[in-house]
Nucleic acid binder design. Structure first.
Lengths: 336, 336
DNA sequence: CTGTTAGCGCCTTCAG
DNA sequence: CTGAAGGCGCTAACAG
């Protein structure tokens, strides 16, 4: 790894002159420039961005902290983030917290040490600790997908309450009256908001009975919650899964119980799978514009870095989209 | 952002002493240590890893350069990489090249400037340019998933040739004789290797006719290749898709043509989807241990960074697994 | 046990 | 048009 000094020596000039050539700043005679460029080429010299960053206090690096990149929803967000960031010359460090608050603060600590210019955060907990930490250290950030109750910060998310509302209204329109929601972890705002949308829809329809289950945003969680929901008499006629993984788990439980979808039970879910993953789309879902969420969050963050905006925290709420498919149908005969 | 100097001033000691406290190096009196720790807490001081890296020539950062994180196969690899890296205190920068050679070298250039300690590379092209670039700059790297013909470098990949062979043998065992392969870009080694496994299986079965199509590793590519394959008379009785996206595209084309799977046409594919994504697994596939590939590649890279190993390039080849499901069956009546 | 000096690689400032 | 000095934040090596 050669340094700017090596190049200078080889070209018979000072380091400063090399720096000027690299950055196209100041005046340089054509002849020296060529000599320098040749020396650079010969040595395969690459400027050390670390030293640069140390001076400029800018690393041109962002961080994306999410719960699990393996979840297609987050994968797509990640792609939006990276596309937008790289277009503007930023790199992206990614971190998986697995919904662990401790892992999250661990990661944030490292990221701050590494002087990332900004952080895109899908918070594991709805406590303001992480956000406070970043704020205190003066690291700009944007909260993605989830809310942090009680604090006002830049946020990009979907109106999940409304999405849940749409989904439940769809079921109500089909004639369902006993609808169970298989929600996520109670502490995660997106899970809570989905429950609230569910409640709102039921309330408006004058339905008092509700069946709310909490569990992990996982296949296993969905399986367990579905089992619980099925054990109730009278059994619900429709299941609302708070995300795709939960839906899969629920479908497995239904299959095991010998129940057909949608004949014996309707199933609807939050989050769609990318069309490239599915052979024959089956689930009725509310989809979120994940890619766009990633892009917008990154743009907002980059704006902040550039000092744009009036400093007022901005909350960008993107719309969800109801996609009716074959997993939802009118309820059949009322079960005992 | 306070510096080590600020802490020193506040604690009434020198910067060096603070440094010793932070790093637990050398001897420090209990009393000074406490004073320093308090000052650190009061200021919310976080050491600047940039300055540290500049001295130590170690950034504790790796890079993962792949074609598209959105592809579940690569997403899973990415998760394996990040898990392994973070366990050892390394961060991971990720980059999507979309199979573009130019984007790839652009990224690599930035990564070298940022002084990443090592690179995990899924090369977009099979030319040795990228690998040579890294080698010249002294940046350790491991090639993932694909080969680069003619050069001997650390590599972690699957035996795709063998996987393809298994898949085609499975079709042959079912009685198929006219099998078309919908491969990926001819320049990508995994695509080429799948074709070679296909050819080997056919040759061993004494079958002369082959039908090889090249296209993108995408749904669109699969769709187009399937259309071409279906236009031939006599039509093949089985389709071998070189990855999951191609399989989806092919299935769409078959659906459009009114052909049922597996009754009218068997379909098999490379790469399985994570079980959490699929309701009822349908495709017969050869799966690759993507997560493990990510882990092993990262471990190998970290070993290299630690100076372990005898310096001989190592090639780790993981086994694939044939999973027979419902998309493959004996051929029906020979079509005109 | 603690402080001083010097330098990692780069660039701003100020002189030539 | 080009160069020398100084400093970004940190720590190894050497004093005290």
């Amino acid at each position: 790894m050669s340094t700017i000094g090596d190049v200078a020596k080889r070209a018979g000039v000072s380091a400063m002159t090399v720096s000027r050539v690299i950055n196209n700043s100041g005046y340089i005679s054509q002849e020296t420039r060529e000599r320098v460029e040749q020396a650079i080429a010969e040595l395969g010299y690459v400027p050390n961005a670390l030293a640069r960053s140390l001076r400029f206090k800018q690393t041109k690096t962002l961080a994306l902290v999410l719960t699990d990149i393996t979840n297609p929803f987050f994968t797509t967000i990640a792609r939006g983030v990276e596309d937008t960031a790289s277009e503007q010359g930023f790199s992206v460090i990614f971190c998986n917290t697995d919904e662990s608050k401790d892992d999250e603060s661990e990661y944030l600590n490292v990221l701050v040490q590494k002087q990332v210019d900004g952080v895109l955060l899908v918070p594991a907990a709805s406590s303001p600790a992480s956000v406070a930490f970043l704020h205190e250290r003066g690291v700009p950030f944007v909260v993605l997908d989830r809310r942090i109750p009680g604090v006002s910060v830049d946020t990009v998310r979907c109106d999940t309450d409304q999405g849940a509302y749409q989904l439940v209204c769809h079921l109500l329109d089909l004639g369902h009256r006993r609808i169970a929601i298989l929600s996520g972890p109670a502490a995660v705002t997106t899970a809570a908001d989905r429950v609230s949308g569910y409640r709102r829809a039921l309330a408006e329809a004058g339905i008092r009975e509700e069946a709310v289950y909490y569990g992990g945003f996982t296949v296993e969680g969905g399986y367990q919650m579905a089992r619980q929901a099925l054990a109730v008499t009278p059994r619900p006629t429709a299941l609302f899964a708070a995300n795709n993984f939960i839906a899969i788990g629920a479908l497995r439980a239904l299959h095991e119980a010998g129940l057909r979808v949608p004949e014996d039970m309707s199933v609807v879910a939050f989050d769609d799978l990318p069309p490239a993953f599915v052979i024959a789309p089956f689930l009725t879902v509310v989809g979120q514009p994940a890619y766009d969420m990633g892009c917008q969050a990154t743009l907002l963050l980059l704006d902040r870095l550039a000092g744009k905006g009036d400093g007022e925290p901005q909350e960008i709420i993107l719309p969800t989209e109801l996609i009716v498919r074959r997993s939802s149908a009118p309820p059949c005969d009322p079960t005992p």
